[in-house]
Nucleic acid binder design. Structure first.
Length: 349
DNA sequence: ATGTCC
């Protein structure tokens, strides 16, 4: 069926990703595929796409069901970057039941890895609001915690249970898949809150409710159809944090996407290079020192050198271009710009 | 993406 990619001629969109959109569009029951300006190739399914179908395909959401980005206001007296980076808690170590932050109820009875950030493009970032275009959410100079993480092993186990029997085929029992899926979505959201609390505690600050918490890997049942989002967020009257990179700004935007965009907006800058390309090219281009102290003066806590190269800002598209495309196609309008101060990736070496 | 494929 129909495919529409919301990008301009100057935008970097790999043909492989567009090909994937057309392959998805040819699936049984597919009504419409909307590619966001951060579209890039994924494993089988494109990343940065919203796919509307009468048939539910778990592989279109992928393994990290419930992955999303939340923004929490935080107040700190006088932020000293080195001191703050050193005080970030170990978010590779899971919470335990004797921890004071341990929740009373855990969705899906999945206590493993609760409170951990994971790897890949996940991060917890202390950032400063640098510019405000629309009043009412955050003020210039405010500090926020941006948490990008998902359901860790839980979503992976849900997809694997399906894939082992049905591969890339449709969900045999959509209601059963959706029940497990919804638990992973709740687990992911709880996990982001717990991480914000862990960091706020460690930095001696109070915790606040998130001003934004939007998933970008999930299924929404809409008018009896399944709207699969993979690296795409809801954009219908809600705000979304569109993540830049570890070393460039991020944008809080107000989404107002229509049916052509499957009611969705981009979730980030989007990869420009595969992980293997980024590792090879950035090893030649950068030192770990300059990747740990970025061009905007922020610090990156990342003990894993390989991950540092894979996640270098040059591995991603320009966030300004992605936001420009959202605005040009009237999918969203900018609310505020944040600049990273300290980004936590992993303590592990 | 993932208690990580060898």
């Amino acid at each position: 069926m129909s495919v529409r990619v919301f990008a301009s001629s100057q935008s970097w969109i790999e043909s492989d990703a567009v090909d994937q959109c057309h392959r998805v569009a040819a699936l049984d029951g597919m009504r419409h595929v909307a590619g966001m300006p951060d579209l890039h190739p994924g494993k089988g399914a494109p990343i940065g796409a919203a796919m509307l179908s009468s048939v539910l395909y778990p592989f279109l959401v992928g393994s990290d069901i419930g992955c999303g980005i939340a923004v929490f206001p935080i107040k700190l007296k006088r932020p000293n970057l080195e001191r703050l980076a050193a005080r970030f808690p170990d978010l590779d170590r899971a919470l335990t039941p004797d921890d004071e932050l341990w929740p009373d109820e855990i969705p899906a009875d999945h206590p493993e890895s609760l409170g951990t950030v994971g790897r890949g493009n996940h991060f917890v970032e202390l950032a400063r609001v640098d510019e405000v275009m629309q009043e009412g959410r955050v003020g210039k100079g405010d500090l926020v915690l941006i948490v990008h993480s998902g359901s860790r092993g839980l979503g992976e186990s849900i997809l694997r249970a399906h894939t082992e029997v049905h591969g890339a085929g449709p969900a045999a029992d959509p209601a059963a898949y959706l029940e497990a899926h919804d638990q992973a979505v709740r687990w992911g959201s709880l996990n982001r809150r717990l991480m914000a609390e862990r960091v706020a505690h460690a930095l001696g600050a109070a915790t606040a409710e998130p001003i934004v918490d939007e998933c970008h890997n999930f299924v929404e049942v809409r008018d009896g159809l399944y709207l699969h989002r993979k690296g795409a967020a809801r954009g219908i009257g809600n705000d979304v944090l569109v993540a830049g990179t570890r070393g460039t700004p991020s944008y809080l935007v107000a989404g107002h996407a229509g049916a052509e965009a499957n009611f969705s907006v981009a979730h980030g800058a989007g990869r420009k290079m595969s992980r293997s390309d980024a590792l090879r090219r950035n090893k030649a281009k950068h030192t770990v020192t300059e990747l740990r102290r970025t061009a905007v003066g922020s610090l990156v806590v990342c003990g894993d050198r390989q991950l540092l190269f894979e996640e270098a800002p040059t591995a991603y598209k320009r966030i300004e271009q992605v936001i420009g495309d959202l605005v040009a196609h009237e999918l969203a309008t900018p609310v505020a710009v944040t600049i990273p101060l300290v980004t936590y990736k992993t303590r592990d070496r």
